[in-house]
Each structure stands twice: as C-alpha cells, then as structure tokens.
Nucleic acid binder design. Structure first.
Lengths: 311, 311
DNA sequence: GTCAACATTTTGTCCAGGACAAAATATGAA
DNA sequence: TTCATATTTTGTCCTGGACAAAATGTTGAC
C-alpha cells in the first residue's frame, strides 16, 4: 500500500519537517526533559504519536515567542494553547468594519482564493491611497496573519500566498510613482544577512516614495560590508534597514552599531521592525522607528536639517 | 568583529544551507569517499574551504540530474562543469528573436527587475495569446531557467521570482476565461504529496480552459485518498496530475497505478511532466503527455469518445 | 528483444551519548 | 538605572556503527 495509515506515528524526519525542530534537538529533548517520548518501530527507530507532534508544534511556536523549553515542555496541551491565546490577544479593536474586512481577507488566504484576495486588497488600496493602505491595512493585517499563524490556523503555503499578494500590490503601486524617482533624500533599503523578509522594505518604500524620496532597494540579505561599500559611494543620504520579529534583537543591535561606525558621518542610518521594539536608546546616532507612521515625520526632519535651502 | 572574514572556511551548518546536502551526508561522504575533507577549527569542528563548497554544489546538481556520488565525487571541478554543460546543452535553436527575448528575460530575473519582467511577459502573452504563450514561451523558458539554475547562474530568490511572476500572469489570464467555466469535460488538476510545483498545473489549466474545458484545481500536494474521494463524487470527467523533474519517477508510476485502480472506470486519468518522460507504456489505462502541445488533441479525442452527441 | 522478479551494491538516514559554544539569565559593581 | 561578569540553559556538533531504501545488475520467461 502506498498509504500505510500512519495513525501509528511519524518518523523523526517527518516531525522535523512538520515542527521545524531539528532531529538533534528532538533527540536531546527526549534525553533531557523526557518529552517527546516516541515509540520505536521494528527497526528501533523513533515513531512519534500524532498528539506529541501537535504538542511539539505548540511548544515550537511559544519558543519562537521568546519562551524557554524548560518552562513549557512539561505543561499539557491545554495550558500551551492558553498561553498562545494570551500572546495573540492584544489586538486593537479598531474600526469594526475594517476588522470584518480583515477577517474576510484571512478567509481568502486560508481558502487560496487568489483572485478574491487580490481584488479586495486592490480595492482597499484605491480607496485609501498608498500610504494609508500601508499603515492602516498592511501593518495591522501583518499582525492578524501573524497571530493566525501562531495559532496554527495557517500553513506555510497560505502565509506565502499572503506575502506574495501584498508584495505584488505594493510593487505595482510603487512603480506608478516612478516619475518621482529623482528626488531627495536618496534612501538605500535593505536587510541584514539571514533576514529574508522583504515585506518591511516594500512598506517603507511605499511610504517614502509618494513623499518624493528616491528609494533604491538592494533586496534582502546584504552583507554588512556591501552595505558600507554602497554607502561609501556617496550616492545615498540615508541607509534604511528592516528587521522582522524573527530576527534576534541582539544580533540586530550589534550589527547596527557596527554599521553605524563604518558609515560616513553625513549618511543617516534608519532602522525599524518588530525586532527593535524598545531598542531606540541603545542605538545612539541611529533613528529607530517604532511604527511605520513615523516615517514621513522623520523625512521632514531630515529635509529641514540637510536641505534647508530647498525646503 | 561581526564579519570574521570567513575566507578560512564555512561551518557544516552553512554548507548544509548552501549545498542542500544534509550534515549526516557530508560526514558520511568524508568517511567513505575522502571528500570533502574539511579543516578543523580550534574546537575540532569541521571548517569547509570555499573551493570544496563550490565543488559540493556542482556535485549536488549532478546528483539531482540522476548521477551517482561514487561516479563523480573523485572528478575535478573542470570535469564536473563539463558534465553540467553537457546536460544543459540540447537547447532547441529555434527562432533567434525568441532566443534573444529569453536571454533578456533571464537577465531581468537575475537582476530582480520585477517590473521589466512582468511587462515583457505580459507583452508576449498579448502578442501570442494564452495557449501559444504557454507552449512557446513558458515551456521553453522553464528549460532555460532550469539550465541556468543548473549552472549556478541563479540563486533561490531569483528562481522564486521567475516562478511567481509566471504564475501571476497565468492566473490572471485564466481568470479572464471565467465565463467559460461551465463546459465539459470537467477536469480536476492536482499533484501528489511532496510535489510542490504548481506551475505545471497552471500551464495545463491555461491550455485547457480556452478550449472550453472546466478546470478545477485542488492545488498541490493532495493525498491519493483525497484525490480518489473527490473523483468518486462524480463531478469530474478527467483527473490530471502533474510531476516536476524533481519527482522520483518510480514513485510517480506506482502512485499513478494505485490511483488508476482506485478511480471509477469512466473517469480518465491524465498525467504529465518531466518525471514521466518515456513512461507511457508502463502506464496502461492512463494518458501520459510528453508535451503540453498534446493536450488540445487529447481533449478533442475525449470529446469524440464521450460527447459524440454534442460534438 | 522486453519485461518482471530477485540478488547485490550503493547511498542516505538513523542511533547513542558525550562534549561544548552560544544564548539567555542572574548576579554584582559603578 | 546601566554595564560587565558569572552561571545556567539550550542547541549543535562530534564519532562510528548500523541498516533501510534506492539504484543497479542478473536471471529467466515470454
């Protein structure tokens, strides 16, 4: 039979795929904490019962949220679900109509309704304009989708579909502003190595471009040295770096300090994203953004400071 | 320092990421074949010189093409490159103008020029119409991109960009035919589990829909049992399954045989994709497609057989 | 010659259990 | 507070043996 009715359990490689926990990690947890405790098949190889895999998935999500294995690995499934709900809870009530729209969008994502998803987003973009679309739709939607992902309501392909569609919409909208591509300041956009999330960069670009800034994106994962070299060319006024919530805060802060010290004085360094929440005062000489809404203000401030004559 | 000047070598985890070869595999190759032969750092951990990583990448690509480690692991880099060139060689000369367009498209992909890429593809679609676009542009372009990937001229994000853009164009074009969505035959499109490539499905849908067939895509990775259940509903005339070149031929053939035996007599089973080249006669009772161009003919044949009255 | 069934080789993954670096946290000093 | 330094926690790496799954080679029937 091709479908061996795997109600019995999953091999370790499948659990690694399903949970994102490395095989070595699964084995060392078993040794240290006594969980998971897989059965063994005829060949002495581990066979993980489905319930244990489900629990592992929950533990994985909580660890991603900053909790530590030893604290949670002994808890039962119900307690783990409770903790996840707790974390995902503080959603802003906001406009009820907008909330309903978000729910509808989430449904489209879950059901793979490309067409409906695209159309709905496009309509919101037309109604609100690019900047409000980013700050009032994309930013909160990212939270909604992130929470749904946390609860396990979305699979990888669904999350992917969402990201791609948003990116398409934003890219198209940005390119409509191409005529403005000669303004000041000239902003270099990028992320550090190991940071693959491009959505933040596009949100920044979509917010700054209509304000007349000239955004040049280097894409994701630019080595620090390449960023420095590009900035040394003198073509850029501002270097903007974005960090998703998955990026380790420590690494972001260290990297930004290093970059700042390697950058010419007159080049501003801007940084933002979930990983930098509350890290502003640890980064002197760097403009840290708590919210995407602060970008236009910072742009004005830059212009007053450096382009007094033109303003 | 944050950038330790890694000219010395890469740790095993980085090599796993770069080459796609599992850590266990890297270690067992070292034990068995004497290659790779990493240096050791102060902690006794493997440190792979960059040249060895490059060679590993070449070996990986050749293995993906069906060669076996023992045959090639002892060869030098030049010989490996030669073999890769040999494999990628048989490109059809074809229309020189079209070739130049393909080269331009490849350049857009490499440079992340989303906008140019989208525009060029859109223009070709408008010029040729959906079906010729699929058979004369998408199919050969897939080969061109695949070859470039083989040579290491493309990275993961570039390949991804290409796939996404093609999918967007095709999806939009297909949805323009939505009015025809009530015809016969009714075709179910999907792939087997572990087959993630959705592009083939879209190409089929884009070819059949303008002919008046009603395509219903279940997306990728549908368990065999779910395919059977869906087919048992009686809503479908044809089940079409697509396999990328990465799918193991043996698994495809076994799966198709199992599926055929589980399907109602009157439901046709169509299968195609690189993995099935030359497998037609091993699959009695199943229509195997060597080329996307054969789809319209098969559709006509089906209609003559089952809808004689209407034709 | 083609094809299926079986034997053999190749190849990737799994295992145990020790070790240790990197990350996170706690502790103490300025 | 904020910084630097100890201590714990945690994930990854190591060795070398074993073996299942895949690929290949062989045999015999049609």
């Amino acid at each position: 039979m091709n479908t061996p009715l795997q109600a019995t359990g999953l091999p370790i490689a499948a659990v690694e795929r399903d949970t994102g926990l490395a095989k070595d990690t699964l084995r060392v947890w078993e040794r240290r904490y006594g969980f998971p405790q897989p059965a063994r098949d005829a060949n002495g190889e581990r066979t993980y019962p489905l319930e244990q895999v489900d629990k592992l998935r929950l533990i994985r999500r909580l660890i991603d949220q900053g909790l530590r294995p030893a604290k949670i690995i002994g808890l039962d499934v119900q307690a783990l679900v409770g903790m996840l709900d707790e974390i995902g809870k503080p959603r802003d009530g906001g406009d009820p109509e907008r909330c309903a729209q978000f729910a509808a969008i989430l449904k489209f994502v879950r059901l793979h309704l490309h067409e409906d998803l695209r159309r709905t987003l496009q309509q919101l973009l037309m109604k609100l304009g690019l900047q409000r679309f980013v700050s009032e739709v994309v930013a909160p939607l990212n939270r909604v989708v992130g929470d749904a992902w946390l609860r396990g309501e979305l699979e990888v392909p669904e999350e992917h579909l969402y990201t791609e569609q948003i990116q398409n919409i934003l890219r198209a909208a940005i390119s409509a502003h191409a005529a403005l591509r000669s303004g000041r300041p000239v902003v270099m956009l990028t992320t550090f190595p190991e940071e693959q999330h491009a959505l933040g960069l596009l949100m920044v670009e979509a917010t700054l471009t209509p304000e007349g800034a000239c955004c040049v994106s280097l894409g994701t994962q630019t080595p620090l040295e390449d960023i420095r070299n590009a900035a040394a060319s003198g073509r850029f006024d501002i270097v903007a770096v974005s960090f998703s919530s998955a990026y380790p805060a420590r690494q972001a802060i260290d990297g930004l300090r290093t970059l700042r010290s390697g950058l010419p004085e007159q080049v501003s360094l801007w940084a933002g994203g979930a990983a930098l929440q509350g890290a502003a005062r640890k980064l002197p000489g760097i403009t840290v953004f708590e919210s995407i809404d602060d970008l236009p203000g910072a742009l004005d401030a830059w212009r007053r400071l450096y382009c007094a004559a033109q303003a």
